[in-house]
Design a binder for these strands. Structure first.
Lengths: 208, 208
DNA sequence: TGTACATCAGTGAACGCGCGTTCACTGATGTAC
DNA sequence: TGTACATCAGTGAACGCGCGTTCACTGATGTAC
């Protein structure tokens, strides 16, 4: 038989998730360091004191949100990199993947872009650690490709970071398009595609 | 004779600058959307109400800080790009320029990195506009180089944005090194140099 | 199955505090004659 | 140069408000027998 959570545990999880969801929603319009505990509980419809049953502070909730948000970015980044090796069609598909992810999880993407350099140290560190892990995975993925023959591990990691950063930049540009500020999707996709292509060309001639 | 400000105007400018300086200092440890007006005036030693003689709101002060901070970044970016065309030595010099700028103006760099995707819309827009202007200037600079022969204006602008973004990423990594979090300077410089080199190689083979 | 006790997620009142903003003011600086 | 009035950067008291945190509590759920 499957392990079922008790009623109490299940309800607790539900409230915890409601707090995370409410916070993520509120963070569309402000940054974590100005988000109030009472604001979050008010949005959920519980007493302010209930917050402490789940998190020690807003910073603590922020770290939990990093896990959630980067959990959703994880498959996107992996798929994108696998898709983005060289040919123009594959690059175009990778860019489309990013655009699709931004459409599906705009709040998560915004949260990561905003708090990556935001005012809460523990959250910055959580994001940096997760992105470093991503870069390592991407670099392992790149190593499988025959195009990686002759590349040092160090250079693969350097390239992986370049890809990860480029994806985040592109994602946050798509986000601005979604908001109505910034350029339109077409234009962003076009520029991002060419930048990826240039990086791809650099990659192909790295060992010349 | 030179135009001298009246005593009253001069004193007003001094207070205004003190407010900007105090705010920039306080923003080392938090983000703009959580910075308080009273916090800033307290740090300067004036009454809270004096703030309104200079700015309508904290967001307004933030926009003024963007002008100041990017005024200082301006020469750095221009010099870096001019220096970063192709040879390894020139790239290394460009990276050193960035590191030096971060040492000289850490608070300005942090402010731009933090608020570029921060919680205050008018400030985000001010930064985006300024960076777009930079990218245009950089692209004009690139166009002068003989390596730009055959390049469309669009592709030059695409490359310029790639450079500008790459510089900001590198600058914010150097900042983390300065803080003691993140990697050390040597390591950051090494990776950034190779990424620049890869981009440079992509640039050289763009028209193949 | 039923009972008696333990656990603990969520409550609601209370606290002291700092916030942004208003307002009428003061007194040094500027200006007109 | 001196006088009379205007300007306006900075003051200080007052306001209502929402904040984070504490505390003793309630009552549904869990557990032992």
């Amino acid at each position: 038989m499957s392990h079922t959570l008790g009623i109490r545990q299940a309800q607790k999880q539900k409230t915890r998730q409601a707090l995370l969801d409410a916070a993520l929603g509120l963070l569309e319009g402000q940054s974590l360091s100005s988000l109030g505990l009472r604001e979050v509980t008010r949005a959920v419809g519980v007493a302010p004191t209930a917050f402490y049953r789940h998190f020690r502070s807003i910073a603590d909730l922020g770290v939990a949100l990093v896990e959630e948000a980067l959990g959703s970015l994880h498959p996107m980044i992996r798929t994108t990199v696998t898709a983005a090796d060289s040919s123009d069609e594959r690059i175009a598909r990778a860019i489309e993947l990013i655009a699709g992810h931004v459409d599906a999880y705009p709040a998560h993407v915004r949260f990561i872009a905003r708090e990556r350099h935001g005012g809460v140290q523990s959250v910055r560190e959580a994001i940096r650690d997760q992105l470093a892990r991503f870069a390592e995975e991407v670099s392992a993925e790149l190593a499988k490709d025959r195009a990686a023959e002759g590349w040092s591990e160090e250079d693969l990691l350097m390239l992986a970071h370049l890809y990860v950063d480029q994806m985040l930049i592109t994602a946050s540009l798509f986000l601005e398009a979604l908001d109505g500020t910034g350029e339109d999707r077409e234009r962003i996709a076009q520029v991002a595609t060419r930048q990826m292509r240039l990086i791809s060309i650099g990659r192909q001639h790295w060992l010349d």
